[in-house]
Computed example of a mutant assay.
Amino acid sequence: MKILAAMSGGVDSAVAAARAVEAGHEVVGVHLALSRAGGTLRTGSRGCCTIEDAMDARRACDVLGIPFYVWDFSERFRDDVIADFVSEYQAGRTPNPCMRCNEKIKFAALLERALELGFDAVCTGHYASLVNGPEGLELHRASDAAKDQSYVLGVLTAEQLAHTYFPLGSTPTKAIVRAEAAERGLSVAQKPDSHDICFIPDGDTRGWLAERVGAEQGAIVDRSGAVVGTHEGAHAFTVGQRRGLSIGTPAADGKPRFVLEVRPISNTVVVGPKEALATAEIAGDRFTWAGRAPQDAAFDCHIQIRAHAEPVPAHARLSDGELSVVPVEPFDGVAPGQTAVLYDGTRVIGQFTIARTVSAVPVVA
């Protein structure tokens, strides 16, 4: 096959490209320039897609003996990922920018251009597996549960899966990948993994958002509506948060309060006890299927609501264009805007963006 290897500048994508070459494919490496801040450099393990990363990707391609290019996707990234991130927070939701990047950039914009240029597939260093099932191609969890990235790939459709290549999916551990990189003479063998949001490399999400959406003082209220404190901008809070709450009135039981809801229109943050974070149902109308769609409108599954959360058994139902999920045991601290990924064993069924939640703990008047 003719394969376009997406080279982030990290060890995973470098080894993935090396394995594609070793498998006999015609491989071309490409690094995506997602920011026009030319002087930006990575700090420790924070951020990615910087000049330093592009240089590391080029060196890896030189070692592998494959062509290397840098493609400027900064405008698409700004419009489809960064702008979405800001607008979601402005609407009181908690977005996942890695999901949007995979959905809009790596497996949409990049894949579209790759196919236009005659490539058969895009290769990445994601830890996930593709399996030829009885009814077509299926997306499955990776062998290494600690590194499994099937959750952030849950946005991929059947058509996109047909043109993807994940060489690391069956690798038992990340240590094996690093050892292989060293044996191949790749300088990124011990490069630290990137963390946090790539376009906020200092990790100060609150400060970054304040610069773009402004900060306006508002009320912090309890579930009854009583004002218990003030804040400097509702966008800085997310459901489940405990730290950073300026509450002057202690709870009657003396226990800490948590953010239960963010109301952007009134610039209000609702807080309450930890048990009030229990969520009995989640639902959304922005959903996709990773391969074949479920044959029945109602079905049992496992649901995962965060990248590193444990999947929990649940019952899903599709009705009137909305996909709703009721877990066997309530979720803890679910926020609108999060992505819920559905599994059948190790296979990814599909995903949806959470638009509404139902609390398992009713408000006591």
Rank of each mutant, 00 (worst) to 15 (best):
L168C: 09
E183V: 12
A162N: 02
T173E: 11
G169I: 06
R178P: 01
L156N: 02
T157S: 14
T171F: 09
V177Q: 04
A158F: 01
A175W: 06
T157A: 11
G154S: 10
A182Q: 15
H163F: 05
P167S: 12
G185R: 08
V155W: 12
L161C: 07
L186D: 01
E159F: 07
V177Y: 03
K174S: 07
A182M: 13
A181T: 00
L156D: 02
A182H: 13
L168S: 06
V155H: 13
F166G: 00
R184M: 14
A162H: 02
L168E: 06
A162Y: 00
F166E: 02
A175I: 03
G185P: 03
A158M: 03
G154Y: 07
S170V: 13
Q160H: 05
Q160N: 08
H163C: 04
V177A: 01
L168Y: 05
Y165C: 12
Q160M: 08
Y165F: 15
P172G: 09
T171H: 10
E159K: 15
T157H: 10
A179Y: 14
A181M: 03
A182P: 05
A179Q: 14
F166C: 06
I176P: 01
P172T: 04
T157G: 13
R184D: 09
H163E: 00
R184W: 11
K174P: 08
P172R: 05
A162V: 00
I176K: 10
T164R: 03
T164P: 08
I176M: 15
Y165P: 08
K174V: 04
E180I: 02
A181S: 08
G169Q: 05
L156F: 05
P167G: 07
T171N: 10
A175Q: 06
A162P: 00
E183Q: 15
I176L: 14
S170I: 14
E183H: 14
G185Y: 13
Y165D: 07
G169K: 01
F166S: 04
R178H: 06
Q160Y: 02
V155R: 10
E159D: 14
V177M: 02
Q160V: 10
V155F: 12
T164H: 07
G154H: 01
K174Q: 02
V177I: 13
A179I: 10
E183N: 13
T171C: 12
K174M: 07
T164I: 10
T157V: 12
R178V: 06
L186R: 04
A158C: 02
T171R: 11
A179E: 15
A181I: 03
L186P: 03
E183S: 15
E159N: 11
L156G: 03
P167K: 10
